[in-house]
Design a protein around this nucleic acid. Structure first.
Lengths: 192, 192
DNA sequence: ACCTGAACACCGTTCAAGT
DNA sequence: ACCTGAACACCGTTCAAGT
């Protein structure tokens, strides 16, 4: 078996989409590649570095798609971000636990801050606004994947009673745009 | 040693504040209580239930403080939430991984939705708006605790160059209010 | 009722040894 | 250069046994 970092990362992503982050161990990953766990340590210093590689790989996909968009605005960035994150189960958790300043990821962060600046956010609040946008998309996808799993426990009855019926719920795509609108309009209202 | 759920939860919180979630195991927790790991399983079905108990305990503290506030608005809820979450290291992560509909936590969720409704959010978007508010506070505190840890790796130099100097950064309290303003103003702009 | 000893099936990681 | 066997120090969890 001829391994390399790419192959291992892609096998990990396959496993994530099959069974999720909880069951992804160096041992299960190795088994899926017909190799022993120790072999992986020739290609990655440790599990953290592997996770970092996965986040960086996803960031690369996003960068590639963004490169094809001219005059990219914040909506487009957010949409592409969401779409690519959704392609890998538990990707928000992976982004959360890994070091963010890898090359492709740094590019995304800089683009995000750039777009915030264009929207009129002042220098002092660039970081916090950027984090907020980032957290919004990550949390949104995390929630989507959590509900898609369908393995949650029930809501209590008293709670369900106060709730809008499923018919009255916004669909996930519309709801995402709704959240994005809140953020953008909030930025505009706060910067002028 | 006479154990009960409260004692165990408080010992766990102490351990969280000393060394964080990563090193909190049933075994280290038991050791801090001068007891064997197996003993904990008399009081909690498993580790998940213990974590759920911790989130519920924190939610109880928040509820207690909220009860003393008359005409509570969204700002006050957010502030109290942030303050109590900050008292327990890694609490955002714990809230993220546990079942949310425990008694005190359900009360908080219902209050949050209530306040969103008062702000004019329509029925269809109550859930998504509520999640957004919740995610904002949780992510904010998570980021705060991450930076407070001070163990992160460096930003790349090219990145740091583009960054506002520390003097020009908003302080954490002000930045929190700034984020909150974005959210509230965004809600208002979107609902009318 | 409440705690423990001892075990089971896992982890991530290391490292001498193989090819 | 690349992979493995075997071990180390951990996990969460169970359960018969002790008091």
């Amino acid at each position: 078996m001829k391994l390399d970092r790419q192959t291992i990362q892609l096998a990990a992503i396959t496993l994530l989409n099959e069974t999720g982050l909880e069951t992804l161990s160096m041992r299960t990953l190795a088994k899926s590649l017909d190799v022993k766990a120790a072999s992986l340590y020739f290609h990655f210093k440790n599990k953290d570095e592997l996770m970092e590689g996965i986040a960086e790989l996803i960031s690369g996909r996003i960068s590639q798609r963004l490169a094809k968009v001219k005059d990219c605005d914040f909506y487009q960035l957010a949409h592409i971000l969401r779409e690519e994150l959704k392609r890998v189960n538990d990707s928000p958790k992976i982004f959360e636990i890994t070091y963010p300043f890898t090359p492709n990821r740094t590019k995304l962060i800089l683009l995000g801050m750039q777009l915030m600046q264009d929207l009129g956010v002042d220098q002092r609040h660039l970081t916090v606004a950027g984090n907020m946008g980032n957290n919004f998309v990550l949390s949104y996808v995390a929630d989507e994947q959590y509900f898609a799993r369908g393995t949650q426990r029930q809501m209590p009855a008293e709670f369900a009673a106060q709730f809008p019926s499923p018919i009255d719920l916004a669909n996930p795509d519309e709801a995402f745009d709704y959240g994005l609108d809140i953020f953008i309009h909030g930025l505009q209202a706060t910067t002028k």
